[in-house]
Design a protein around this nucleic acid. Structure first.
Lengths: 325, 325
DNA sequence: TTGTAGGCGTTATCAG
DNA sequence: CTGATAACGCCTACAA
């Protein structure tokens, strides 16, 4: 392995000078600079980031922790974040916490030990105490308290829009397949649903069932739901994954969508477009979320004490074929 | 930050002894060992993996590079690999090369610089020259030459089974939506298809179109395909992602599946089950692939010169609703 | 402008 | 069984 010392030797200068050249510090003659750069190129020298980290406590790396890598929403986010990070000369470590708090803590610890320069995390449980070091953090998707910067969407109003869309297209009995009660986005979406239906005379608490943001779970709970409430003619699924599960169920029950039952989801993942019929949904600006998150994070990295920042983005209704026009 | 020196001091021993305790080396009295461990616990000391890496050239980390994180096949793999790695005390760095050779090279370089102990990669282009250091590598999914250990499935026979299934269920004109011609799995699946249909009098080269393993692309090329060849009554899609795209197209064309056209995919991703009708497919043992790959990799890590190993797993036909029985 | 030397936190070698 | 100390590769005062 070729080290900074080798370069110094071949170039006939000191390691300090080489270091200065590498890091673009001033105080080096143009001439020696060239010479050093030439040698670096000739020997195909690369600085060892591990050695740098050891005295920097920095790594040109950011971490990304997601709760469920098999929910396409997160890979879509990750893809953009990785691209942005690499464009800025950082690389990204993606971790899948699998909704497991213990695993999440372990991953955070590991990432910190690698001296990551920043962390983007989608987690409800996350809080300051999880951190050993004082690294910049941006929380996405899931909303926590306001210790850290966040990038989220307006789940509440999105949910209202979803539910009202069902109302406006003629649904008379609207159910909600909610996400895990512990997850803030799920709470907000449920609240939006409630806001719209609570005043209706037909509304009934049994119209709310928990699908855990999980496709199969949604399939099963919706099956029970419909068994007990055959009058339901509209379903607002808390996310697209569950919306897809609901469509699958309705297909197996030979229910006509949207003629007999309308379905709307939430997220706007690419896969919501592939169902037959295509799922109507409240789309999140996934790309923008990723961009905002990385931007805020990099600001934080550059200026550790830049303000805590809360960005709330708007959702967009996307008409599919699973609801009427 | 509490270092090994702090521990040594509080415990009244040398750093060497502390290091021995940490690494479970023999030659330490049970008594001093206990004392040191006590201090470590009290001060909540954690070894700094970066410092360890600097003289080890090891990191307790393995890398995973995948070509497309938005194809659910890969997150499904990643999930299992991460779990396995963490169980063995390693952590995983997931990278998405996005089918970009330059990016892939960059990621490999970055991972090497982080002193990863091993690499699992899904790539056709990958070869020895990409590596600077001599680290253990397992190539999955995509088949390369035999320099490295590989874990793959029998794409050829799987493709034959897919095509024969269409034949056996009465399809008379069978087309193939292939993956990128440069990708070996795509070549093998195409070859399997050819094997079955080549002898048929109706077979025509125009029945093979390239969908690039991409959903939207498959949608579009299949549209053209059917426009020009309305007699086609069976489609073997090179992967499930494209199979899903084909189903979507057929739905939009109001073609009855499987009555008018049968469709079969390849991979067996979870999402192939959510379409209406459910996609018949040649399922890969995704979990097993991940397990084999990590097992082989860890063997390689323990014994750098353990044999290069090629594991070829079998596929399984999975009857959905998009083909007849 | 350039060089020397100490330090980042560990491990490993060699004495004791 | 234990302890000093050099090394890992780099950065950064401080000196020259």
């Amino acid at each position: 392995m070729v080290t900074i010392r080798d370069i110094a030797e071949k170039a006939g200068v000191s390691v300090a000078t080489v270091s200065r050249v590498i890091n673009n510090k001033k105080g080096v003659t143009e001439k020696t600079k060239r010479k050093v750069q030439q040698v670096i190129k000739n020997l195909n020298y690369k600085v060892d980031p591990i050695a740098v980290s050891l005295n920097n406590k920095r790594s040109k790396t950011i971490g990304l922790i997601m709760p469920d890598i098999t929910n396409p929403y997160f890979p879509e986010l990750a893809k953009v974040i990785e691209k942005e990070a690499m464009a800025k000369g950082y690389n990204l470590i993606i971790c899948n916490s699998d909704n497991d708090e213990r695993l999440e803590k372990k991953q955070i610890s590991l990432l910190e030990q690698k001296y990551i320069d920043g962390l983007i995390i989608a987690s409800d449980l996350f809080e300051k105490s999880y951190l050993q070091r004082d690294i910049p953090v941006v929380v996405i998707d899931r909303i926590t308290n306001h210790e850290f910067s966040t990038v989220t969407v307006d789940n509440y109003n999105g949910a209202i829009e979803a539910t009202e869309h069902l109302v406006n297209t003629g649904c008379k009995r609207i159910a909600h397949i909610s996400g895990p009660p512990s997850v803030k986005t799920a709470q907000e979406r449920l609240k939006g649903y409630r806001e719209v239906v609570q005043k209706e005379s037909w509304f009934n608490e049994s119209f709310i069932v928990n699908g855990e943001y999980n496709l199969d779970k949604a399939f099963n709970v919706t099956k029970d739901l419909l068994k007990n409430n055959s009058e339901i003619d509209g379903i607002f699924a808390g996310n697209d994954l569950m919306g897809v599960g609901v469509l699958k169920l309705l297909y197996s029950l030979e229910k006509l969508v949207p003629d007999e039952i309308s379905v709307i989801g939430f997220d706007g993942i690419a896969f919501s477009k592939i169902t037959n019929p295509e799922l109507s949904t409240i789309a999140q600006p996934i790309k923008q979320i990723a961009l905002e998150a990385t931007t805020i994070l990099f600001n934080l990295i550059v200026d550790k004490h830049s303000n805590v920042f809360h960005k709330k983005l708007k959702t967009t209704f996307r008409q599919g074929e699973s609801t009427k026009h």
